[in-house]
Write a protein that binds this DNA or RNA. Structure first.
Lengths: 199, 199
DNA sequence: TAGCGTTGCCAACAAGCGTTGACCAACAGA
DNA sequence: TCTGTTGGTCAACGCTTGTTGGCAACGCTA
């Protein structure tokens, strides 16, 4: 009866470390993998628990519900650099390389993309990330701030489309491209979406 | 014991019309809507049957299984025009407008996109459509046919990314753009992906 | 050593799923 | 009018799901 609050959503060193921290982290890692591989519905709590070598009821105890676990597993920080300190003609290229970096290094974004498409809460989460992390970049870079939403949306479409075909649908040509090829092709597109005066 | 074959997947006037054709069509329409709205797992046969005001067992009788129903509901023809008859500098613009047309008029593509992301069979279906319908266009238009897969994949990424943000995730700026705005922004991108000599 | 909160497992629950087979009503051809 | 086919409903099946509560072992503090 002591811990009514089910989930410690902020895992960044807040209070005393618990003995179960390793278990919690294991569940979270397994959840991210499963969500990324299977989407929200097919990623069952039982499967996640099995991956983490733990009983399903532990998942419930630590994260309250499947929704809670999902929320904890898909808290994403795009780690956006400060684009205002970059030469204007290089923002497109930097945006592509940065996204490729972030996407390759963790399965969280693939998980989020997969879930955002089946699950209402997932879609809402993606809109939040878009508004809080990509939109400010466009606002700081594009010529007329009033156009920032449009320009950011165009960039999001291009970047998410690449991620979709490359990491989720696995279209062979898209999956086989090297990072450099992708950068060379997409950088001018994003550059134009962000900084061109008119379409 | 007469009709072992459960589904008439080709509905285009092959044999004598049956009394149940309306029911079949109703099921298919309801299935497309549900698949588009909910994705593969959440679109239950029971819900589809309810929408079509029919018993769930009828769905099984006419389409064999949920997989069969899905296959019938997402047979997509992109109706690609003959791009070789179009002035070379207009293929980008035509490609955008054509895709917007196809996407707006039927929910099938949204259904396919949603399902292609959670379901293995759905992803396979999308790769087929890509290879059979978009790839030939690139092959006929781009300068070096060996680059056609890459160029087609880039176009697919841009188009699908737009569809994703506009129809599925519903990013407000993307969903609110007019067809003309989208065309103006995306046409040069696709034009470059298809016809530019180098990135 | 006793007490207590924490960590974990086990067994079960109710609900929902795809799927099946028995059964009835309407129709068409003889 | 009889008979076989077709269109459709109903009730149930076996299974999986998220979720819950009880219970045993551990580790700390007094």
């Amino acid at each position: 009866m002591t811990d009514r609050a089910p989930a410690a959503l902020t895992d960044t060193s807040d209070a005393a470390p618990r003995r179960s921290d390793a278990t919690r982290a294991g569940i979270l890692a397994a959840a991210r993998e499963r969500f990324a591989a299977d989407g929200y519905e097919r990623a069952t709590i039982r499967a996640i628990a099995k991956d983490a070598r733990i009983d399903p009821s532990m998942v419930m105890r630590y994260y309250g519900s499947k929704e809670g676990l999902f929320a904890a597993a898909t808290s994403v920080d795009l780690r956006m650099p400060d684009f205002t300190r970059v030469p204007r003609e290089e923002v497109g290229r930097l945006l592509v390389t940065h996204f490729l970096d972030v996407w390759e290094d963790a399965g969280q974004l693939t998980a989020l993309l997969r879930v955002g498409i089946t699950n209402q809460a997932g879609a809402e989460r993606m809109r939040e990330i878009f508004a809080q992390q990509l939109l400010p970049v466009a606002r700081g870079v594009c010529p007329d701030p009033a156009q920032a939403p449009t320009r950011a949306a165009l960039c999001a479409a291009q970047v998410l489309g690449l991620a979709l075909t490359r990491y989720v649908l696995r279209f062979p040509p898209s999956a086989e491209l090297t990072g450099e090829e992708i950068t060379d092709w997409l950088a001018p597109t994003l550059q134009r979406y962000l900084t061109a005066d008119r379409p």
